[in-house]
Amino acid sequence: MNPVFSMTAAEQQHFFMTRVPHNEALGMRVTHCSPGKLSVDMPYSAELVGNPATGEMHEGTLTALLDATSGSVVLTQLDDLRRTATLDLRLDFLRRAKAGADIHCDAWCLTITDHVATVRAIAHDGDSADPVAVATGSFAVFPPSVKPAAGAAV
């Protein structure tokens, strides 16, 4: 059984977000975790605004959210915890996020092999039928025997 599902919600939050300090710094919060699906929220912050005149979140922060959620959802499909890395991530920005709105991201693992996973994700600001951005990506799945260097994110 995947060790993620024996964790409490607080332990899942710590596991998924502290592995990459940038995700934690952006305030990302795990809101749902099940086999093949992960949801993460990023609260609105004035520090993350791209254009002060409009107040919507910068596209770079949306990219970070989509990438982090997509790479992390792969871990919900594995029997043992491994490292993953983004191989390819296609983002389509469909509209600007609403000023002052938190962003919610849902990611699904579409396929997974011993070496590569394919993921789909959407980011929205309140209505999943009206996404701000969508992503499709492929992620390397490292063998369990590959040990990261001391201090490296897993």
Rank of each mutant, 00 (worst) to 15 (best):
L65A: 07
L87N: 12
R19Q: 15
I112V: 15
Q12D: 03
R90W: 00
P52N: 03
A85H: 10
S70N: 10
L38F: 05
C109E: 07
R96W: 04
D102K: 02
S72V: 01
T118E: 13
E11R: 12
S72W: 02
H58W: 02
M42G: 08
P21S: 05
A46V: 11
L81T: 12
L75Q: 13
V20F: 14
D88W: 05
A64E: 06
L78K: 10
E11K: 11
L94E: 03
T111M: 10
N23D: 11
F16A: 02
D80C: 04
H32K: 12
S39L: 09
V49M: 07
A25G: 03
V40S: 06
D92G: 04
G50M: 06
Q77Y: 00
A85N: 06
G27Q: 01
L94G: 01
L48W: 07
R90L: 02
L94P: 00
D79Q: 12
L87E: 04
P43C: 06
I112R: 14
F16V: 03
L65R: 02
G36M: 00
L81Q: 13
L38V: 01
L75G: 01
P35C: 06
R90I: 01
L75R: 11
G71E: 02
I112T: 14
A46T: 10
Q12S: 07
V74F: 12
I103Y: 02
L91C: 02
R83Q: 11
V20P: 00
A53F: 11
C109I: 11
C33W: 06
L38M: 07
P43G: 08
A46I: 05
P21M: 10
F93L: 14
G27P: 05
A64W: 04
L89Y: 10
D67M: 05
H22V: 13
D79S: 13
R19G: 14
T113M: 07
R95F: 07
G27M: 01
T113S: 15
P43H: 08
V40Q: 04
H22G: 00
H22P: 00
Q13W: 08
L75N: 12
C109G: 09
W108Y: 15
E56L: 03
D106L: 10
T18R: 14
D114M: 08
L62G: 15
A101Q: 09
